[in-house]
Design a protein around this nucleic acid. Structure first.
Lengths: 220, 220
DNA sequence: GCTTTTTTTTAGATTTGACTAAATATATTT
DNA sequence: AAATATATTTAGTCAAATCTAAAAAAAAGC
């Protein structure tokens, strides 16, 4: 029931690669993990022996139910720590991933469930990705972006999909953060810019490029 | 500048054993780490090569300045996480150590300094042990216990030295926690029990055994 | 002060996770 | 469909951290 840091990194990476394609290949995984194909083959044999994935030589691999369950637990830990780092420790959005890569391997269930409660059971991490719950349930995956929200509909910022320092600086300046409530006041067809209301009566205009990167939680 | 989990555990344990005796022996360390003497000798050679300790075959070992600096950084991480677990995640005093043993090996300096700030730069962990600051400075080490506090002197609970569930239950019942302000009202010579005031006007009596285990920060 | 016991070290083996180089299977060309 | 190219696996090494068994040094007993 307990896996090494190395095993966890393989499992997590397979999960992410699987989503895009049906099956994962040796080279893909080696590239993603910055390791060699031969090392991947070795690990696949081990994970198959542990019954976490399907694997026949030369046929690629994919996680089975047990492997998926393990992957979701790792992703839950990663995203909860990211949320903690951003919200509580005031790390910027582009710094959280690297630190969470280390924290995610501390696999004490009680710790993670208590952290979840402390954070108020957040639904999304700072990049807008959904956080699996204690049972491994995860929300759709489809993220709603600001331009898809109708006029005059109050909504809450749940993350940004682009993690560059530039976008951060701009958002910081406009005081748009995770949890910020906002509402679209006007859509300009000319350049697709949006006039939005944030907080009580602050009105500002944001470009289409910026709006595309702001992820939204629907509920008021 | 970066050490493996195993190296860190050896360094940390040597630091704790040193305090009591001048030099640490192979068997002592093997006992503490639940490993074999031969493994200890191997690791001592490695840590000596890394210039973290003094070691001559058959002569025991002790950390040098660099080794002590590394040990204090590990202890700082451990105790800050313990404080976080107890204060923020509501772990009980007897549960925090085990979890902190894992978290302490995530050695990102920025993470730890930001955690420190988030927690309000606590001086002691939930067991009353002092937390080294960002520069590795650590306070005396001498803990003051409740019976040593004079009458009518307001003070603050900084921890307990005994971590059993029984003492916890009792303290919980009497609403004595870390940070609780209290003041001794009367000392009974017969059984050395103490009558104390906690909070506004709650008066209660505690036994000598209990008082001995309550650690105090002097400042009002 | 020699002998016995205890402690520590050395020597050699094991496991995990990685690597290189070579072999083999699959895919792509022509 | 054979030849070439690419992807994958196998075979054999290596380093880290552990172990057991045996040898060597230090300490204790008589």
């Amino acid at each position: 029931m307990n896996y090494s840091v190395s095993e966890e990194n393989y499992i997590k990476t397979i999960f992410h690669l699987q989503k895009k394609e049906g099956t994962v290949t040796t080279n893909e995984l080696a590239g993603e993990l910055k390791t060699r194909p031969a090392s991947v083959t070795d690990m696949m044999k081990k994970l198959k022996a542990k019954k976490l994935l399907h694997y026949q030589p030369y046929q690629g691999f994919r996680l089975n139910n047990d492997g998926t369950r393990v992957a979701l637990a790792i992703i839950r830990r990663h995203r909860l720590w990211e949320y903690f780092l951003a919200e509580k420790l005031k790390f910027t959005w582009d710094e959280v991933h690297e630190v969470a890569e280390e924290l995610e391997h501390v696999s004490n269930k009680k710790l993670i469930d208590k952290l979840d409660a402390f954070l108020g059971y957040p639904k999304n991490d700072p990049h807008g990705d959904p956080i699996p719950d204690a049972n491994g349930k995860i929300e759709s995956g489809k993220k709603i972006r600001l331009p898809e929200i109708p006029l005059h509909t109050p909504c809450i910022v749940s993350g940004v999909s682009n993690q560059s320092g530039d976008i951060l600086e701009l958002l910081e300046h406009k005081k748009i953060r995770i949890g910020t409530r906002l509402e679209i006041r006007k859509k300009f067809d000319f350049d697709e810019s949006l006039e939005i209301k944030t907080g009580k009566q602050t009105i500002t205009t944001i470009s289409r490029q910026l709006a595309e990167n702001i992820l939204i939680t629907h509920e008021a």
